[in-house]
Amino acid sequence: MIPSVPQSRYFRATYRAYVLMFFVYLLAPLLVVAVFAFNDSMFPSLPWGGWTLDWFFSDTEPKLGILYDGELMDSIGISATVALFTTLGSLLLATCNAFLFERKRFPGKDLLYLLMLTPLVIPGVILGVSILLMSSGIANDLESLTGYDIESLRPGLPLVVTGQFAFITTICTLIVSARLRKFNPSLEEAALNLGANRLQAAVTITVPYLSPALIGAGVVSFLMSFENFNTTLMLVGSEAPLTIAMFDRLREGSTPALNAVSLLLMMGSAVLVLISVVVQRDPT
């Protein structure tokens, strides 16, 4: 069944209809979320109450627009901060890892590589729980030993960053390694021959070559952190990142305000993804 092999018209039409239905299935939930952000009604459901921008810009209850909703806006700020720290940490470690696995030879390398991949197969809830257990254990021990309670080992944003960092690093490492593997080492050797030391060669030749992958990995990890729910849920303290705040609201009963936040989220992701696509398309 390829275009060069004859197929009946009936078969071809059915197949095409199936693929079309698949894409409807794929996009329907997203479109629905976006459209109901403009519903002039208290509920994100039919009947349609007419178009409105109140869910974004209104500053009065009951249709409080999200821009005036302090709780939601704060949670967006929290999520962005968490995502920023997670991304920076993951990128830094991922770059080290990529150089280690692509450039160095050492005993136990294969085993370490496998271990490096395991965060991908640990369910997020379990990863969160196990980090919660260990940090609480350490905090309790320290408290009984020294009498100090270290706040950042208790559930809260530092732990959320730690938990997300633990698995996002793996994904970044895979992205950066893939690009480093394609790098031609003779470029770096040329720099060394021309009198650069190893660090200079890395900074002027290799890192610029890696930058599309670094930006791509940065975008992926920022989005994954921003949108993470499972690991975050287990480690979160009193300050709720956006996904947690939205989840709490969803359980109370939803209003189109949630659609409005979702639409903002989707647009934000779209912009970031576009940036990474443009950067990675650049032929270097």
């Binding site: 979320v33 459901s45 989840f247």
Partner: peptide, 22 residues
């Protein structure tokens, strides 16, 4: 595309589609 959208948003979309008044 769905991968770039938060799982929460996707699930919310299904709630809007499938609920009684959906």
């Amino acid at each position: 595309i769905p991968f770039w959208v938060s799982e929460l948003v996707r699930t919310y979309g299904w709630m809007i589609l499938l609920r009684e008044s959906g």
